[in-house]
Design a protein around this nucleic acid. Structure first.
Lengths: 225, 225
DNA sequence: TAAGTTTTTGACAAATTCTTGACATCAGGC
DNA sequence: GCCTGATGTCAAGAATTTGTCAAAAACTTA
């Protein structure tokens, strides 16, 4: 079960967040001030941090910075009383992932939390991933199929990794280009097709009838374990 | 659908921004220079402006100031080359809401755009939706009916999604064409009928007597859960 | 620089989906 | 109840999307 750490001293808001997230299946932990928040975070990093800006003992800004130093991948959503432009820019620079001003709409916060959680990837749980006779080791960037090593190029590897990290979800070519290729060189969407083709040839039992790297006609591709 | 106005003369960046925002459901309009940008803005103010600082005909700084004079509520994100000497505070005083230096990470820009658009919050959507024996999973683009998977084409899927997101409300064929099909390709209203037909055949218990995908004679269709 | 590798592009065929128009049927106004 | 326009339904053709290959371009490495 995914844990959410709420760093917030206002009791009312604490309760509201509990009521919002617990029915959705999240475990909510609450810290009353910045110091306690950092301690709780270090003890066992949660999947998401919801952070109030005005805190006793340690300001939200410091907590944000500190957390991003420790484990940069954990997303942070900042709560603040007033929309202050300078704060917004600073916070995003400090590493906050999103920003919500109080009073917030519960549905909006929930939606933002989902987005933030979806962005974080979970290969931290396992260094490698297997399907059929194929085993992919992410840190080693190695792929073994039926005992023999298979060579993937770096782009193929990144493509496979992103699809696997987002298993089951339909990914458009555009999203793949954004996430795997990045901004500087922006090729055609056909490039994606070709990489999928290569992945199928190298990893699927029957490349002509792919089971794992599936096409969703008119939408994109999705990986099914 | 929310519209984003991009004022930017670099073709590469234009394409990148298009591919970044369009999959997220935004409509992207591009203006090549400052003057054209201001004209486009006045014609129909968008939900967000992404503004390059170095522009032909009218500098980004002037555009920024001008826009804020016209409609101060529309957020502006400024793009600037890394080499530019940039006084953040000055820029923010001119009315910009946020700034990003090139080359930017797509993810970061998207996150900042979301923050900027916060004021016009879209209703948050759940991952899945059920009625009768039918369950629709949106990110997976999967439909299961009585335990068996049902294949929807991408257009059918988008149509169903839009109707469900607007449950109970009567949607005209024109609105469906605008929202689901988009501006560029504009088929006959009969096309909508055909897609509704397919949805009924695939999702209704008795397609001849639809309970959920209802016709509102003379007005359009509406989804009833 | 040159050889080798990887990435990107474009062409074409194949697969799938979308659109259209014809005709049947239905709802609502008179 | 009849008439008119709106909707249901079907299937053929149009259009789009994807698979696949090979060559060009870009990048690496020696």
């Amino acid at each position: 079960m995914e844990r959410i750490l709420v760093i917030e001293d206002d009791l009312k808001v604490q309760r509201a967040l509990r009521r919002l997230f617990e029915p959705e299946g999240y475990t909510v932990e609450v810290a009353e001030d910045g110091l306690a928040g950092m301690q709780a975070f270090k003890l066992l990093p949660p999947a998401l941090v919801i952070l109030d800006l005005n805190l006793p003992k340690m300001t939200g800004r410091d907590v944000c910075q500190e957390i991003k130093k420790t484990a940069s991948s954990v997303p942070i959503i900042v709560l603040s009383a007033a929309s202050d432009v300078l704060d917004k820019v600073l916070l995003l620079e400090l590493g906050a992932d999103d920003y919500v001003t109080k009073p917030f709409s519960p549905r909006e916060l929930l939606a933002r939390a989902r987005v933030a959680l979806r962005r974080t990837v979970k290969p931290s749980a396992a260094d490698s991933f297997s399907f059929d006779e194929v085993t992919i080791n992410f840190p080693k960037m190695e792929v073994v199929r039926s005992g023999a090593e298979i060579q993937l190029t770096s782009q193929e590897f990144r493509t496979a990794k992103f699809l696997i990290e987002n298993s089951e979800r339909v990914i458009s070519r555009e999203e793949l280009l954004n996430e795997v290729w990045g901004y500087q060189n922006y090729p055609t969407t056909r490039t994606v097709d070709n990489h999928i083709l290569k992945l199928r040839q190298k990893l699927e039992k029957d490349p002509a009838n792919p089971v794992h790297f599936r096409t969703v006609h008119g939408a994109g591709y999705k990986f099914v374990p």
